[in-house]
Design a binder for these strands. Structure first.
Lengths: 106, 106
DNA sequence: TTACTATATTACCAATTGGTAAAATAGTAA
DNA sequence: TTACTATTTTACCAATTGGTAATATAGTAA
């Protein structure tokens, strides 16, 4: 494995790590259609404001989200529409997994 | 956010977490075309055998990889070919990110 | 100015993750 | 049987992550 590939995998892993958290996935999917302000995201996800703020900054840092200020509010938007394609693929794995497990129980 | 969506996000995050590590990404990409035995993967990635074994079991547990025994060797294969589509999307984010940062420096 | 609102940041702690080294397992072969 | 090889598992430790509560920042409005 060459050094170049190693570095590419490190960068890719940073982006995937920023996606790989239940609340962050929920936010990404919530932002699929349109931008939302932090207070809407907090209401939707149902956790503390400071917690959401930290998760948003993690995703912003790697480029998954962008933000825009308007008055007191900050609006976040999804900067990576292709991420939405992931979810069907991931979901397929989950369902295969579940059906294999239940088959194994029989 | 409904309970059902929350659970879906939790499952999806488990799969993504199992992908979101530089060595594990390297393994997934190495397995893109064909199955490989553990010793080949160890040689390719260049870390200890017990470390690789642990990473492989993490990916196997969530269904990303499957394995097959042949004599002393264990062969792993990618059970999630659609994962390969992720990487271009992730790579696009990385490159946008890099070009925005270098633009910001100017 | 003061008070209020939305958001971000900090400090802290508990839980999880990732790595290494050693021991266990299991197949092969003499 | 014994020795050898490939792999997994365990025990352990350091580093990272995720959450909460408190504080700071910044815009708005009286």
């Amino acid at each position: 494995m060459r050094e170049k590939e190693r570095r590419r995998c490190e960068l890719q892993a940073e982006v995937l790590k920023a996606l790989a958290h239940p609340l962050r996935l929920a936010v990404v999917q919530y932002l699929a259609k349109e931008e939302k302000c932090v207070c809407e995201i907090v209401d939707y996800v149902g956790t503390s404001q400071s917690n959401i703020s930290k998760h948003l900054s993690i995703m912003k840092r790697v480029g998954i989200l962008s933000d825009r200020k308007e008055g007191l509010s900050v609006y976040y938007r999804l900067n990576m529409p292709c991420a939405l394609n992931f979810f069907q693929c991931v979901q397929d794995i989950i369902e295969t997994q579940i059906s294999e497990r239940s088959a194994a129980l029989r």
